[in-house]
Amino acid sequence: MVDLPIYLNFTFAFLATVGFAVYFSAPKVSLIPSGIIGGLGWLLYIFLFKWNDNAVISTFFAAGFVAFLGEVLARKLKNPATVFTIPGILPLAPGVGIYNTMLYMVQKEFELGFSKGVDTLSISAAIALGILVVTSITNTYNILNRRRLLKKLELIHGPFNINKKDS
């Protein structure tokens, strides 16, 4: 990893995230927030990687952080969470690992290629799991909140069925 100043790391991750958001045709309102999420996720990854020297754990927590911010902004800006989360995780994607895996395989250095490939797949799985955990917790929280609200409404207005259609 190249040791760039923090502001350059944030700037490059911000620009990459905004670029992917534009490519994915995200709403214009979400471009700057998506870039900020991507930049903050990348900074968290760098901090965690310098702290524990484990790319998989660092990626897991950074992806979870990006997913959490995406869920929060989805409610604030009235857009789907994927508008913020998908571009935000792209700076975490293991592009160099994929490239090096293929390079080692082409050069017939199969042991190095297999090792790098396992590392790359582990990082990719950490991204997916980080998003999955946060999204699952958020959805569970929303379901419980909805149930709590329905029970409160039943206490005030009496029992009712929201699934029943009026004829």
Results as ranks from 00 to 15, higher is better:
G35T: 03
V2W: 10
K151C: 02
S34V: 09
F110Y: 15
L31C: 08
R75T: 12
G35W: 03
E71W: 02
N100Q: 13
E154C: 14
P80N: 13
I156P: 00
Y104P: 02
V18Y: 04
F110C: 05
V22N: 01
M1E: 07
I162R: 06
R75A: 14
I156Y: 12
W51I: 04
A93Y: 09
G158V: 07
S34A: 14
T101C: 07
N145M: 06
V72N: 05
M102Y: 03
I131S: 08
T17W: 03
I37H: 05
L43C: 06
I162P: 08
L69H: 05
S136G: 14
N163M: 05
K151W: 05
A26Y: 00
K165S: 07
K108R: 13
D166M: 11
T120W: 04
F68C: 09
S58G: 15
V29W: 01
V106L: 14
G38W: 01
K165T: 00
M105L: 15
I123T: 10
T138P: 00
S115C: 01
V133N: 09
F114K: 04
I46Y: 03
R147L: 12
T85N: 09
P94W: 07
I156R: 15
Q107G: 05
L149C: 05
S58E: 03
L15K: 00
V96N: 07
R75V: 14
I131P: 06
E109A: 10
R147E: 14
T140H: 08
N79R: 13
F47V: 12
V133S: 02
D53Q: 13
R75F: 11
P27C: 07
G130A: 09
R146A: 14
D166C: 02
L112G: 11
F49T: 07
K116L: 01
G39P: 12
I123N: 06
D3F: 14
Y7H: 11
A126I: 09
Q107T: 00
L73N: 10
V22A: 07
S115Y: 09
T17I: 06
A26L: 09
I127Q: 02
F160H: 10
V56Y: 01
